[in-house]
């Protein structure tokens, strides 16, 4: 870890000014990902701007019913918030399924969105990686890729996004708000993460110098009956090998509305719009769920050792939607 300057920001404008246009400056939130990456040498900032004391630690309900979550709200406080648990249970479940109690107490919402992939080649600076060093190659394609992408990847990078939280946020049409020196802006989460293409090092559409200030969850009554299921290689404290955020509104045996997003299958949380299209207006029966999963997974391009993820996601879609429909029928 190289030496760095440390500044503490007390207001948003000040934080943005401290970051300036310096490509070697980073905002420090909980530090649970950044400090680790600095230790492994993936990140080598020359200045950190500490934003933990910014007044962005509130969760508020707007007049239109939207929930505004401040960027420095900790993952733990997000999952514990009554409105989140009541109106967006899959979001609370996803956050609770991530990391550990200690890390959730430290990690922030903004940092969670910006966390980097856990691909073992990315985190080992002695290895080539197109995400770290554009053009150096992607050893995962021919190497160990059991937990790599089956959707939306390219030959340049097959890493998956590690966030649990971002999966339900994607399903619920969350919008990311940010501040720059030129003023505020916002990005729907669906547009926040860039496609991999041949630029895997460019991960988000955030403008340079932007500070995430919060995430807005629009009102989504369907989300009240939602669930997050995460599958991993041990029962807890591990990243997903596949996860699903699902919400279902069934009326008279027919799917009125459905939201689906898949985790750990792509470079970003994967909104399953094709599946939602099949579900909407169709009978709420397992065959429909399977057809919906198949419609989404038709685009899957598994590598030699991660084809199980296609089976896993199909099974998860059917299982979780069945559970939600049964729950609604009770």
């Amino acid at each position: 870890m190289r030496e760095f300057d440390y500044r503490r920001a007390t207001d948003v404008a000040g934080a943005v000014a401290l970051l300036g246009a310096d490509p070697d400056t980073r905002f420090l939130g909980g530090g649970t990902n950044l400090v680790d990456l600095m230790k492994t040498g993936v990140e080598r900032p020359t200045r950190l701007v500490d934003i933990r004391e910014l007044p962005l630690d509130r969760i508020e309900t707007a007049d239109d019913g939207a929930l505004r979550i401040g960027a420095t709200v900790t993952n733990a406080d997000l999952a514990a918030h009554p409105e989140v648990r009541r109106r967006y249970p899959a979001l609370a479940q996803a956050v609770l399924a991530g990391a550990s109690g200690q890390l959730r107490n430290m990690a922030t919402v903004g940092g969670n969105l910006l966390q980097r992939t856990r691909c073992g080649y990315f985190t080992d600076v002695t290895q080539p990686c197109n995400k770290r060093i554009p053009g150096s190659g992607c050893p995962a394609v021919e190497g160990e890729h059991r937990n790599h992408a089956v959707l939306g990847a390219s030959d340049h990078c097959v890493a998956v996004h590690p966030s649990d939280m971002a999966v339900p946020l994607t399903a619920f049409d969350a919008v990311v708000q940010y501040e720059t020196a030129d003023g505020p802006g916002e990005l729907p989460l669906a547009e926040f993460y860039l496609p991999v293409g041949d630029t895997p090092h460019r991960e988000t559409a955030l403008p340079p110098g932007a500070l995430i200030t919060g995430v807005v969850l629009p009102p989504a009554p369907v989300a009240a009956r939602s669930r997050y299921r995460k599958v991993r290689e041990r029962a807890s404290y591990a990243f997903a090998i596949g996860s699903l955020a699902a919400a279902l509104d069934v009326r008279d045996g027919v799917v009125h509305e459905a939201r689906l997003a898949l985790g750990a299958v792509a470079s970003r949380p994967w909104r399953a719009l094709a599946a939602e299209g099949v579900l909407t207006g169709a009978p709420a029966v397992p065959d429909t769920y399977a057809a919906a999963a198949d419609a989404e997974l038709a685009a899957a391009r598994p590598l030699p050792h991660n084809g199980y993820k296609v089976t896993l996601m199909r099974n998860l879609v059917v299982a979780v939607l069945t559970e939600l429909a049964e729950e609604a029928a009770r």
Binding site: Y6, G31, V35, D36, A76, Q102, L103, N105, M106
Partner: peptide
């Protein structure tokens, strides 16, 4: 582990548990 993957360095920060290995002292 010094990278937030084992919990051996858990302390209480303002009464809440946290891993000290990913917490910069200056912060």
């Amino acid at each position: 582990c010094d990278q937030g993957q084992c919990g051996a360095c858990t302390v209480l920060l303002d009464g809440r548990r946290a891993v000290a290995c990913l917490q910069l002292a200056v912060a």
